[in-house]
Design a binder for these strands. Structure first.
Length: 596
RNA sequence: GCCGAAGUAGCUCAGUGGUAGAGCAACGGUUUUGUAAACCGUCGGUCGUCAGUUCAAUCCUGACCUUCGGCUCCA
C-alpha cells in the first residue's frame, strides 16, 4: 500500500469536501501574499464550506475579505496543480521550525507517524493529510463569509487566532441557493420573530440574558409547560415546588459549590449570617432541593421509584459572550425531574424517560434532532464513581432505550459524567447551531454526598440511585427551537391567539363581540380587531402575526350566525356557522394536530 | 471571559466635527370599507452610558453596558 493511499484513507473526503479543503489552502496562500509573516494553524472542510485559522500581525476586518477573495480567484484561475509528497517527520519539523510556524510544529509533534504529508499548490506549501482536487481550476465558486476569533485547539487558555470562514460550491447556482437558504433561515430566527410576534424582549436595565415575556409569549410558555406537565404526570411524575433560593451549605454538601461556582450568581449575605455556609444563593439547579425533599422522610423500597418534577426558574451566571436570545439565558425554567430508585429499576426508568421525551418531541413534530449517548471510557474506569455492575447495567439500559426508539444517535465513549452515563437530545436551530435540550443522566454520586437511604426488603438501609432528566430542557431554549421550527406559525393548540375576528365596518362590532363571547366560552383564544382600518389592513396584520384563523364578519355573516373563515395559509373557507367553526377549532386544538 | 463588528425615534434604516432625517408604528381627523397596507395631519430622539480631545462631539479617543458573528466540524 503506497503512502498516498494511506493519507487519503485517513480522511476520506467527499469530492465536495475535497474541493472545499483545497479552497482553504488557496485562502491560506492569499493570506500569505498579504501577510508574509502569517502563521498557519488548521484549515479543514466543514459543513457548507471551509475555514482556516491564522495568527496575523494585525486584526482582520470584514473589509479585508474582498481583497483575499480576489486573490483567491486569481490563484484559482492560475490552473495550479496540487502536488503531494511524504516527508520524513524530522525534515518537516525542521522546515516549519525554520519558518517559525509554531502551530505546524506542534501539529507534527503530536503526529505518531514517521512520515507526514506535504501538499503544494502555486507558491504555498502546507502540512496536510490531504485530499485535494488535482488542480486549483477545479475549485468552484467561493465566497468568504466572515472573520471570527477562535482559540488554538479550542482551548481558551491558548492563543486566540483569526479564523476566516468561507463557502464553496461546484456551481454558481448552488452557491446562490446556499446564500438564499441562509437568508431564509434568518427570517425564522427566534430573536426576530420574538419581537415581531410580540412574544418577548430584553432590556439593558433588567439584565443581559433575562428575557421578559409579553402576554403572547407567556401564553406560549404556559401552554408548553402545561403540556409537559400533563404528559409527565401520565408517566408517573409528581410535581413539587422548592422556591428560588437556598443556602451555601446545601451546595457544599452537593459539591456544586466547588465545581459549579463560576456559573452561580454571587452569594447574598445579610448581616445576621456570620458564616459563609449560611449565606444565600440563587438556585442554579434543583437536584439538591429535590434531594432534600426525599431525605426529609423515610422511604421504603416499595415506594420507589419516586419521581419529583418541578418547573423551576433557575439562575446561572453564563458568560456574556455565550448569551443568545432565548437559546442561552441567565434565568431559565427547567422542566426538571429527579427519580430516586433502586438499582434494579434503572432500565425501566431510562425507558420511561426516553419514551416520554420522544412522545413530547413527536407532538411538536420535531424530527431534526439526534441523541448523543455518553458512556464511560472503559480504559479509565478509576475516573468514575460507582462499580462496574451498575455502570454496565446503566449503559446497556440507556443504549437499548435509545435503540428501541429508532432515533439516530451518536456514541460518545469517555464523554459520560464521572457520576454516570447520560443521553442528551441535540437539536439544530434555524442557523444550524446545535443546542442540547432533553437530557437523561444517571447519578451515582449525589446519593452518596447526601447519604440517601431507603429501607429494603431485608429491613436494612440501602443507597438509592438517581436519574436527572429534563424533557424540553429549558423552557426558554425549547421555545427558541419551537419558534424557529414553526417559523412562528404555531399549531392551533400552541397559538397564543387562535382567532382574530375582523368586523368589516363599525356597525359589525356588536356581532363581532357576540362571536367573541361564544369562542371564549368554548375555550378558544380570540380577539376582535376594532381599529378603524380597512378589512384588508386587518387581514394583513393578522396574517403577519401568523394567527391561524381570521374570521371576517359583515352583514351576511351577522344575518346567518356565521363567520367568513380565512386561514393563515391563504385558504378561504367562505362562510361557516359559528358553532361549526367552534367544533372545528376545539377539535384540532384538543388533538394537537397541525391542521387548521 | 476572549477575538472581530455594531448601537441614531417603538421597528427598519439614512446622515454630518457646527446639537439630526425617511418609511412603518403611535396619536388626531376624514373614510365605513368584502379577504395581505385608505387619505390628510401631529407627536416623537440629551444619536447606548460615562469620561477625554476640541471654540464646538452623535461623529475623534478611552472605559463600561448591550447586541451580532465566532471560540476543535482537529495536519
Amino acid at each position: 500500500m503506497s503512502g498516498k493511499v494511506e493519507i487519503e484513507e485517513a480522511v476520506n473526503y467527499t469530492p465536495l469536501q475535497r474541493m472545499r479543503h483545497s479552497a482553504a489552502h488557496v485562502m491560506a496562500e492569499a493570506v500569505q501574499e498579504i501577510f508574509p509573516d502569517a502563521r498557519f494553524a488548521i484549515g479543514p472542510a466543514i459543513e457548507d464550506g471551509f475555514y482556516y485559522d491564522f495568527d496575523l500581525p494585525r486584526a482582520l476586518t470584514p473589509d479585508d475579505l474582498p481583497d483575499i477573495e480576489q486573490r483567491m480567484r486569481r490563484i484559482i484561475a492560475g490552473n495550479h496543480p496540487f502536488t503531494g509528497e511524504r516527508w520524513p517527520r524530522e525534515k518537516a519539523l525542521e522546515y516549519f521550525q525554520k519558518k517559525d510556524q509554531e502551530y505546524k510544529v506542534e501539529l507534527i509533534e503530536n503526529l505518531p507517524d514517521a512520515e507526514v504529508g506535504m501538499y503544494q499548490q502555486s507558491k504555498f506549501l502546507d502540512l496536510c493529510r490531504g485530499q485535494h482536487v488535482d488542480n486549483t481550476s477545479e475549485i468552484g465558486p467561493i465566497k468568504l463569509m466572515r472573520v471570527a476569533g477562535a482559540y488554538w485547539r479550542g482551548d481558551e487558555h491558548r492563543p486566540m487566532l483569526q479564523r476566516i470562514y468561507g463557502t464553496a460550491w461546484f456551481t454558481q447556482e448552488e452557491l446562490d441557493q446556499y446564500l438564499w437558504r441562509l437568508e431564509e433561515a434568518q427570517k425564522r430566527d427566534h430573536r426576530k420573530l420574538g419581537r415581531e410576534l410580540k412574544l418577548f424582549t430584553f432590556s439593558d436595565d433588567v439584565s443581559a440574558g433575562v428575557p421578559l415575556f409579553y402576554p403572547r409569549g407567556e401564553m406560549l410558555r404556559h401552554l408548553m409547560e402545561n403540556y409537559v406537565r400533563d404528559t409527565q404526570e401520565r408517566y408517573g411524575y409528581q410535581h413539587v415546588w422548592t422556591s428560588h433560593i437556598g443556602k451555601v451549605r446545601l451546595y457544599k454538601t452537593s459539591k456544586h459549590w466547588y465545581t459549579y461556582r463560576e456559573n452561580m450568581f454571587p452569594i447574598m449575605k445579610g448581616e445576621q449570617e456570620t458564616s459563609e455556609d449560611d449565606a444565600f444563593i440563587l438556585k442554579p439547579m434543583n437536584c439538591p432541593h429535590h434531594i432534600t425533599l426525599f431525605k426529609s422522610q423515610m422511604h421504603s423500597y416499595r415506594e420507589l421509584p419516586i419521581r419529583y418534577a418541578e418547573f423551576a426558574t433557575l439562575y446561572r451566571y453564563e458568560k456574556t459572550g455565550t448569551l443568545t436570545g432565548l437559546a442561552r439565558v441567565r434565568s431559565l425554567t427547567q422542566d426538571d425531574a429527579h427519580v430516586f430508585m433502586r438499582p434494579d429499576q434503572i432500565q425501566e426508568e431510562f425507558n420511561n424517560a426516553v419514551n416520554l421525551t420522544a412522545e413530547v418531541f413527536s407532538t411538536y413534530g420535531l424530527s431534526d434532532y439526534y441523541v448523543r449517548l455518553s458512556l464511560r471510557d472503559p480504559k479509565k474506569k478509576e475516573d468514575y464513581v460507582g462499580g462496574d455492575e451498575v455502570w454496565d447495567e446503566a449503559e446497556s439500559s440507556l443504549r437499548s432505550a435509545v435503540e428501541g426508539r429508532h432515533i439516530t444517535y451518536e456514541l460518545g465513549i469517555g464523554e459520560a459524567a464521572f457520576y454516570g452515563p447520560k443521553v442528551d437530545f441535540m437539536v439544530r436551530d434555524a442557523l444550524g447551531r446545535e443546542w442540547q435540550c432533553a437530557t437523561v443522566q444517571l447519578d451515582l454520586n449525589q446519593p452518596m454526598n447526601f447519604e440517601l437511604e431507603y429501607i429494603g426488603e431485608d429491613g436494612q438501609p440501602h443507597r438509592p440511585v438517581m436519574i436527572h432528566r429534563a424533557v424540553t430542557g429549558s423552557t426558554e431554549r425549547f421555545m427558541a427551537m419551537i419558534i424557529e421550527h414553526f417559523a412562528g406559525a404555531f399549531p392551533v393548540w400552541l397559538s397564543p391567539v387562535q382567532a382574530m375576528i375582523i368586523p368589516i365596518a363599525d356597525r359589525h362590532q356588536d356581532y363581532a363581540y357576540k362571536v367573541l363571547e361564544q369562542l371564549k366560552a368554548a375555550g378558544i383564544r380570540a380577539e376582535v380587531d376594532i381599529r378603524s382600518e380597512r378589512m384588508n389592513a386587518k387581514i394583513r396584520d393578522a396574517q403577519l402575526q401568523k394567527i391561524p384563523y381570521m374570521l371576517v364578519v359583515g352583514d351576511k355573516e351577522a344575518a346567518a350566525e356565521a363567520v367568513s373563515v380565512r386561514l393563515r395559509t391563504n385558504v378561504d373557507l367562505k362562510s361557516i356557522a359559528v358553532k361549526d367553526l367552534i367544533e372545528r377549532v376545539t377539535g384540532i386544538a384538543r388533538s394537537k394536530s397541525f391542521e387548521l
